[in-house]
Design a protein around this nucleic acid. Structure first.
Lengths: 162, 162
DNA sequence: TATTGTTATACTCTATAACTATA
DNA sequence: TATAGTTATAGAGTATAACAATA
C-alpha cells in the first residue's frame, strides 16, 4: 500500500495550494473528498476526450445506446438519471453528427428507437481507448490491491444513499 | 464487510432502473462510478442543506473562511479550485445575508480580508450539523473498517491525477 | 387519461476577457 | 507592468411545466 502524502494539495490546474490554508473538518469528511476526487478525475477525463472532440457525457450516452440497441429516450434518461427533456439536445447533437440514428417504431408511434451508427461505433472506439488510458491512471493511483473494494464502495454509495 | 448487492440500481430520485439496462464497461470503470457516487451523495447533502436554506457550495466557502480568518478572495478561490470571478457572486451573497464581512486592509488596498460574522457562525453550526448527519449515513454505507482507506484513496486521486 | 418526446424557459455553476483601482 | 477584485458575457448541464401526437 503506497503512502498517501496528504500534505501537498493541488488545484485543478496542478498548482500547489498554499500549505497554510486550513480545511478544517472538510479535511476528513467523505462527502467533500468524494467531490474533490470526482472533480479532478472528471476534469482529467474531459481533457482527454476533448482531444478527440467529445465529452464525458457523450461517452456515457453513446455507450448506453451501443449496449442497449433500440433503447428509447425515456429509458435512456432513466438509465443515466436525468430528465428526458435534458436528453433531447444531447440526442439531437448525436443524430446531427451522424453518430446515432432514430427510428419510429410501428407498435408505438410515440417512441423512438435509438441505435449507434457505424460512425458512432468508430467514435465510441476512440472514446473507449481514452477511457481505458484514464482508467489505467486511476488504477495506478488506487493500487491493484484496493481497486475492487473501492469500486464496490462507490457502487454501494450510489445505490444506497437516501 | 457488508455484502454489496450490485443488482438493483437506483436513479437519483430512488426509482429502480430496469434491470435489463446494460451498462457495459461503465459498470466496472472507476471514473463512471466515482461520478455516480458523487452525484448521489451530493444530491442527498443538497436536500439536507436546503432544509436550512443553504447549499453545499456555501458550506465549503463558509468553512474555509471560518478556518482561515482574514483570507483574501483570491486565496479562497485557489483553495476551492475555482476562478476568482466565480467567487464574486458567492461572496456577495454571503455578505448581503450578513454571514461574512469584508474589510479593506491598509497594507494593500486592492485586497479584502474575509471573516465570518456571528450570524455566519450560527449558519455554519447548523450546516455542520447537517454535514455530520450526512457523514454518519455515508459511514454506515462504507463501514468503519474501510472508511479510512477509502478516504485516503479519494485524497490521493484529487492530489495526484494529472 | 397516460405516455413519448419537444419546446420554452430558467437556474446554477463555471470560465474567459476586459476593466478599475491599486501596487 | 502586475495583482485583487468586478463586470460582461457565454457556455454546459440541468430541471419544470406546458404542449402535440399517440396510446
Amino acid at each position: 500500500m503506497r503512502k498517501v502524502s496528504g500534505r501537498v494539495r493541488r488545484g485543478k490546474n496542478g498548482e500547489a495550494i498554499a500549505e497554510s490554508i486550513r480545511f478544517g473538518p472538510l479535511e476528513y469528511w467523505v462527502g467533500f473528498n468524494l467531490r474533490m476526487a470526482q472533480e479532478h478525475a472528471f476534469e482529467a477525463f474531459s481533457r482527454r476526450s476533448q482531444e478527440i472532440g467529445e465529452s464525458p457525457g457523450r461517452f456515457a450516452t453513446l455507450t448506453l445506446i451501443a449496449r442497449n440497441p433500440g433503447i428509447s429516450q425515456t429509458e435512456l434518461s432513466h438509465a443515466n438519471g436525468r430528465d428526458k427533456s435534458s436528453l433531447t439536445p444531447v440526442v439531437e447533437d448525436l443524430v446531427r453528427r451522424g453518430l446515432v440514428e432514430r427510428k419510429r417504431i410501428r407498435e408505438d408511434r410515440r417512441t423512438y428507437r435509438l441505435n449507434v451508427t457505424p460512425a458512432g461505433k468508430k467514435a465510441l472506439t476512440m472514446l473507449t481507448r481514452c477511457a481505458r488510458r484514464h482508467e489505467r491512471v486511476l488504477d495506478g493511483i488506487i493500487g491493484q490491491r484496493d481497486r475492487k473494494r473501492f469500486l464496490q464502495i462507490l457502487k454501494k454509495i450510489a445505490a444506497e444513499i437516501e
